[in-house]
Amino acid sequence: MYETIGLWVAAFFTLAIYSFLYKENPIYRLAEHLVVGISAGYGIAITWEITLEPRLIQPLLAGDNWVLLIPALLGLLYITRFIPSIAWLSRYPIAFLMGTGMGIGFPLTMKASVLRQLEAAMAPVYASGMPWFEVLGNLVLIFGTLAALIYFFFSKPHKGLFFGTGSKIGIWVIMLGFGATFGFTVMGRISLLIGRVQFLLGDWLHLIE
């Protein structure tokens, strides 16, 4: 019963959203607002149940971890944002999380997104037994990356052999990449539609497996 009613409610709201394709209407608008309220309400409940209760409230009630009052009080300062006279206090928790977060992330981001990538860009072009299209690919990989980097280098005019030709090759490589992204974007969007149609035809109407 619980599941059957659930399926019908879910189907109703699925169709309510699709009704927007024809025309905007009050049911769509209702659904649009509900989703905001439910997701925020869900977030509060889960954050309390999964985070604050076991990590903060229970240790404090057990009386063995009073030091946790420090992050709790720091967190509570967020609320001062709604009291204009002391709103500046809300900067403290933001400053704590932002400063430490950036400090801790700096060396790791440097490693993950810069150093490792530079290292990987220095790949061998040829190894024995490598088919021709891989050799060609490796050449594209090395020179394509360089050319695309040149294209994004705006401090020098894109003229001459290095900057001019480099940026021209770069834009061709970038367009190939964007084309692939567009193809995958189409695939992704269609997949999301497939998910809903599977729900409507399968879970709800039982027309398909």
């Binding site: 992330g105 790791l108 981001t109 490693k111 993950a112 997104s113 490792r116 990449g177 692939a180 992204t181 995958f184 974007t185 695939m187 992704g188 969007r189 997949s191």
Partner: peptide, 21 residues
Amino acid sequence: TYAREKIGTPIAFGVTAVMAT
């Protein structure tokens, strides 16, 4: 960033098509 680069945990991705490229 925080697991692979910190301690070398092997990571695998399952991502939406929009992000895959």
